[in-house]
């Protein structure tokens, strides 16, 4: 690098540039905070949904599944499983039945453990996945398969 561009100048760009972009980043965080309630239907974020999220976390579902594209890539996306498996009419029957039927025991097929959740927990989990499916995700995923 040429002599006219000194170490001091590089250092100032580092400090000044970082500080500037941290401030922009915080402003965007503020904007995001303002829009999240509407985009996520925060008015429908019930106690059941909150408990459902806790069950999702406490059983490490994200160790096999992705949720809105994040987590693991070993098992189906669950962000839109509500739409894929029954929707308004059927999902509340699908999910508990699915959870109770695991593991399938099909030889060689990827297995999902039996979590022994109570009916109340299954219902909370259903509510959580339904609420999640209705988040405004800029139209992701591209199709029903997730």
């Amino acid at each position: 690098m040429s002599e006219t561009f000194t170490k001091g100048m590089a250092r100032n760009i580092y400090y000044g540039g970082s500080l500037f972009f941290i401030l922009v980043f915080l402003a965007l965080a503020y904007h995001t905070e303002k829009t999240i309630p509407e985009r996520t239907n925060a008015d429908q974020l019930t106690e059941a949904v909150i408990r459902g999220k806790h069950i999702y976390e406490s059983n490490n579902c994200s160790g096999c599944h992705s949720l809105l594209g994040e987590g693991a890539y070993f098992a189906p996306e669950l962000g839109n499983v509500f739409h894929r498996r029954g929707g308004e009419a059927g999902f509340k029957y699908f999910l508990p039945a699915w959870m109770k039927a695991q593991p399938t025991g099909v030889p060689g097929r990827r297995q999902m453990p039996q979590f022994n959740l109570t009916d109340q927990q299954l219902s909370d989990l259903t509510e959580f996945l339904e609420w999640t499916a209705k988040i405004n995700t800029n139209d992701w995923p591209p199709n029903i398969e997730g």
């Binding site: 965007l28 985009r39 995700t137």
Partner: peptide, 8 residues
């Protein structure tokens, strides 16, 4: 992009 954050 796809987690519910705004379009900006």
């Amino acid at each position: 992009f796809w987690i519910g954050a705004p379009g900006v």
